[in-house]
Every structure is written in C-alpha cells, then in structure tokens.
Deep mutational scan, measured.
Amino acid sequence: SQQIATAKDKYEWLVSRIVKNHNENWLSVSRKMQASPEYQDYVYLEGTQKAKKLFLQHIHRLK
C-alpha cells in the first residue's frame, strides 16, 4: 500500500541519517530510533523484523 511505501521511505531516511558506520549494531541503533515517529510508524505497519532487515541492508551498503 501507499501508506507502507511512504513509511518505508521515511524509515530509510531516518536510518541513513543515524547510521553512518557499518559497525553499528541493531540494538543500540533501534534504541536511538525508538522515539522517532518514522521508526514507530514503520514498525507498527511492518514489524521489527522488517525494520531490522532494512537496517542490515543499509549496513551492508556502507561496507
């Protein structure tokens, strides 16, 4: 749906803004993002596993 696509774009923007180093780990980054509406919306719509998967894809691109 359009809502999910929009939430994903915003979440990816948030991840790219916060995660600048491929050594970052999911636990510390997800804690930093918990207060962000972009993170909350995406997790609400798609779940934590998908959020983690996108985070890991971003990390992989930074290597």
Rank of each mutant, 00 (worst) to 15 (best):
S1V: 10
Q2F: 08
Q2S: 10
Q3I: 10
Q3H: 11
I4K: 10
I4D: 07
I4L: 10
I4C: 05
A5K: 14
A5T: 12
A5G: 07
A5I: 10
T6S: 13
T6Q: 11
T6A: 14
A7M: 02
A7K: 03
A7I: 09
A7F: 00
K8P: 08
K8L: 04
D9E: 15
D9I: 13
K10R: 14
K10Q: 07
K10T: 05
K10S: 05
K10N: 09
Y11D: 00
Y11A: 01
Y11K: 01
Y11E: 00
Y11N: 00
E12A: 09
E12P: 07
E12S: 06
W13T: 15
W13E: 15
W13A: 15
W13M: 15
L14V: 01
L14S: 01
L14M: 06
L14K: 01
L14D: 04
L14G: 02
L14E: 04
L14Y: 06
V15M: 14
V15P: 02
V15T: 02
V15Q: 03
S16T: 11
S16I: 03
S16K: 14
S16E: 11
S16A: 13
S16W: 08
R17Y: 03
R17F: 02
I18E: 04
I18D: 05
V19H: 00
V19W: 03
V19K: 04
V19S: 03
K20C: 12
K20Q: 12
K20I: 07
K20E: 10
K20N: 07
K20S: 08
K20L: 11
N21C: 07
N21V: 04
N21R: 06
H22C: 13
H22S: 13
H22N: 07
N23Q: 12
N23F: 07
N23E: 13
N23M: 11
N25L: 06
N25G: 11
N25F: 00
N25E: 13
W26P: 00
W26Y: 00
W26H: 03
W26A: 01
W26G: 04
L27C: 13
L27A: 15
L27M: 13
S28C: 08
S28Q: 14
S28M: 09
S28N: 15
S28R: 07
V29D: 01
V29W: 10
S30F: 07
S30L: 12
S30N: 07
S30H: 13
R31L: 09
R31N: 10
R31F: 05
R31P: 05
K32A: 09
K32F: 05
K32C: 04
K32N: 08
K32L: 08
M33V: 05
M33D: 04
M33P: 05
M33H: 02
M33A: 00
Q34L: 09
Q34P: 03
Q34N: 08
A35P: 07
A35V: 08
A35M: 10
A35E: 14
A35S: 14
A35Y: 11
S36E: 15
S36W: 13
S36R: 13
S36K: 12
S36F: 14
S36C: 15
S36D: 04
P37R: 13
E38H: 05
E38C: 07
Y39V: 01
Y39I: 03
Y39C: 04
Q40H: 13
Q40D: 02
Q40Y: 04
Q40P: 00
Q40R: 13
Q40V: 09
D41Y: 06
D41W: 07
D41A: 12
D41K: 09
Y42Q: 04
Y42F: 12
Y42K: 04
Y42H: 02
Y42R: 03
V43Y: 04
V43I: 10
Y44P: 03
Y44V: 14
L45V: 06
L45R: 07
L45Q: 09
L45P: 03
L45D: 02
L45K: 07
L45C: 07
E46T: 03
E46G: 03
E46K: 05
E46S: 04
G47I: 01
G47Y: 02
G47M: 01
T48F: 06
T48G: 08
T48V: 14
T48Q: 12
T48S: 10
T48N: 12
Q49N: 09
Q49K: 14
Q49P: 08
Q49G: 13
Q49H: 10
Q49I: 10
Q49F: 07
K50C: 08
K50W: 03
K50Y: 05
K50F: 01
A51T: 01
A51I: 00
A51H: 00
K52F: 07
K52H: 08
K52V: 02
K53W: 09
L54N: 08
L54M: 05
L54C: 09
L54I: 14
L54V: 14
F55N: 02
F55V: 03
F55I: 05
F55L: 00
L56D: 15
Q57N: 10
Q57P: 01
Q57L: 06
Q57K: 15
H58C: 05
H58T: 06
H58E: 05
H58G: 02
H58P: 04
I59V: 12
I59R: 05
I59S: 06
H60K: 15
R61P: 02
R61V: 05
R61S: 11
R61Y: 07
R61L: 08
L62G: 03
L62D: 00
L62K: 03
L62C: 00
K63P: 03
K63G: 06
K63A: 05
